[in-house]
Design a protein around this nucleic acid. Structure first.
Length: 301
DNA sequence: ACTATTTCCTGGATGC
DNA sequence: TGCATCCAGGAAATAG
């Protein structure tokens, strides 16, 4: 279940392996529910594009792509029209033909069980493989997702909006404002990607434990002091998890096939009935908005 | 405008 | 052993 720290780890690993590669060909599977954009559009954007960088936005992995396309002056191509007017004007008035870099993005959401693997072409194609990109390095980048909660899409450079604010970049004032007037349980608010992007079930539970707040507490009833603690806890938990390569739950591994180790630091997540590490009270599990939520009934109020 | 609930999906765990 | 059932959970869709 990749959340922000896992996606960050994966994106860093991918950046090391595929930055600068040209995508020489693209294969997309038939399961169209994994595609947010039409298959033809995804293939057209990926094919013959160069991977300029790989980064994380919330729980999304963003591949920044550049395509070199020859634009001939007299014929007003669609590409030329899409460029800024001044640039297009310069183009048509001077050079008869010129290579123009157009920018776009390939956006991957791993959902629950999605993974991106860089491997040799002869590696057996795993079950539930939904996309294969052949790279100029001779390797392949494959998207595998058994449960198919993952999503692939493409966007032009200006398009992609991942929603809320990055939790590692937000300041205390804006953090506090996110919860003002919200009657929803704080747990639900933390999971709401339109507020903060990247926090998932594990890190929401762990942050609430560290700040002593019960997951069911209505967001608007939390004091300034408690929110300040939560603000620190969220950043702390995410940073520690990134440093340990994320949490390996079920079959999560990063781009190098390495497991993360933050699961060993979990204080409440998946520890139902086990003693609280602070006060020995058994950890409780309740369901909030359809999600299992773990907390210590004594330490969290 | 918010908030709560349902739905999607497969494989691993559990129970009889 | 075999088969059915349940559960995990992010986010979109739907309902209130």
């Amino acid at each position: 279940m990749p959340e922000l720290p896992e996606v960050e780890t994966i994106a860093r690993g991918l950046a090391k392996r595929v930055t600068g590669d040209l995508i020489e060909s693209v294969w997309l599977g038939q399961k169209k529910e994994t595609l947010k954009s039409p298959a033809s559009e995804i293939a057209a954007v990926l094919d013959q594009s160069r991977i300029a960088s790989v980064r994380r936005m919330g729980k999304h992995i963003v591949f920044d792509l550049e395509q070199d396309r020859v634009v001939r002056a007299p014929a007003k191509s669609r590409l030329a029209q899409r460029m800024t007017k001044s640039r297009a004007a310069r183009q048509t008035s001077t050079a008869p033909a010129e290579a123009v870099a157009t920018k776009s993005q390939w956006i991957v959401h791993l959902g629950m069980t999605g993974s991106l693997r860089v491997c040799e072409p002869q590696t057996e194609v795993a079950k539930h493989t939904h996309a294969i990109l052949r790279l100029s390095s001779g390797r392949e980048l494959r998207f595998v997702d058994p449960r198919r909660f993952g999503r692939l899409s493409v966007a032009s450079a200006a398009d992609f909006d991942a929603g809320g604010i990055e939790p590692l970049e937000i300041d205390l004032d804006r953090f506090t404002n996110l919860f003002r007037g919200r009657k929803t349980p704080i747990k639900s608010a933390l999971l709401n990607q339109k507020l903060l992007r990247g926090v998932g079930n594990i890190y929401a539970d762990e942050s609430l434990f560290r700040s002593g707040i019960r997951p069911r507490r209505r967001a608007s009833t939390i004091t300034r002091e408690q929110l300040a603690k939560l603000f620190v806890a969220v950043k702390e938990v995410l940073n520690e998890a990134i440093a340990l390569g994320g949490s390996s739950i079920s079959d999560y591994v990063d781009a190098d096939g390495e497991e993360g180790f933050f699961q060993l630091q979990h204080r409440v997540y998946a520890r139902e009935a086990e003693p609280c590490l602070v006060c020995k009270t058994p950890i409780k599990r309740v369901v909030i908005a359809g999600r299992s939520s773990h907390y210590c009934p004594k330490c969290q109020r």
